[in-house]
Simulated scan of single mutants.
Amino acid sequence: MSPQLAPVPQPIGIFNQFIAPHSETLILREKVMSLSGDSFEIKLQSGQPLLRIQGSVLSLSGRKSVFDMAGNHLFDICKELLHLIHTTYAVEDPSKKKLMEVKSSFTLFGSKATATFTSANGTAEALEMKGNWFDTAADIIDKKNGAVVARIDRKLLSGRDLLFGQQTYALTVAPGVDMALMVALCIAMDEKNNDEKR
């Protein structure tokens, strides 16, 4: 059973059509036979498809394009190459306008990153992701009030995932939070940690 998260006081996110109506768990699974190795399918825990992420094979920035199930291009996730100290990812709309920035920082144990963006209602947001990414879990926390807005859990590995080295995550999103942006945060951290392994 997935953990339930408390609702946020006001909506957090950019894509109103992806605001979670209740505590919702998504399953992010890297496609086993993807040519780029960086394509994901995102489904609700019920099995209903939500988003599709397609990696670009020849991109220096590791660009990933995110589409809804109707094929609409929502945004891209890409590494910003000019940042030397802190790994930084940008979430850009199809016209390359930056919607969100995800910047990692050093920690002695575990992983930490901060995402900044402006919600659809005009509120400046800062979310911090911290936890033991390599082991099992990470929380995404609203820096204004310390509330957990999403939780990432990597305990859902199947034998097939281990055999093919593919990633599978459960992402639980609090009511009132943009599920698409939480997926973008999860993918950015996955990319950062994959870069560190190379």
Rank of each mutant, 00 (worst) to 15 (best):
P3V: 15
A6T: 12
V8Q: 11
P11D: 14
F15Y: 15
F15M: 04
N16Y: 02
F18Y: 15
F18I: 02
A20Q: 04
H22F: 11
T25L: 02
T25Q: 06
L26A: 03
V32W: 11
L35G: 05
S36T: 15
G37S: 08
D38M: 11
D38N: 15
I42S: 08
Q45D: 11
L50F: 05
L50G: 03
R52M: 08
Q54V: 14
G55D: 02
G55Y: 03
G55I: 04
S56E: 15
S56K: 15
S56G: 01
S61W: 03
K64D: 01
V66N: 08
F67Q: 11
D68H: 09
M69R: 13
G71C: 05
G71N: 07
N72G: 07
N72C: 07
L74H: 03
D76S: 15
E80D: 15
L81I: 13
T87C: 07
T87A: 13
Y89W: 09
S105M: 09
A113R: 07
T114Q: 12
T116F: 04
T118S: 11
S119K: 12
A120H: 11
N121K: 04
G122E: 05
L127G: 03
E128C: 10
E128Q: 13
D135F: 05
T136M: 09
A137C: 09
D139M: 01
I141H: 10
I141A: 06
K143L: 11
K144T: 01
A147M: 13
A150P: 12
I152M: 13
S158M: 01
S158R: 08
G159T: 07
G159C: 02
G165D: 04
Q166C: 13
T168Q: 08
T172F: 04
V173R: 03
V173I: 12
A174H: 02
A174C: 06
P175Y: 08
G176K: 08
G176E: 12
V177S: 07
A180W: 07
A184Q: 06
C186W: 04
I187S: 02
M189R: 09
D190Q: 12
E191D: 14
K192F: 01
D195M: 12
E196P: 00
K197N: 11
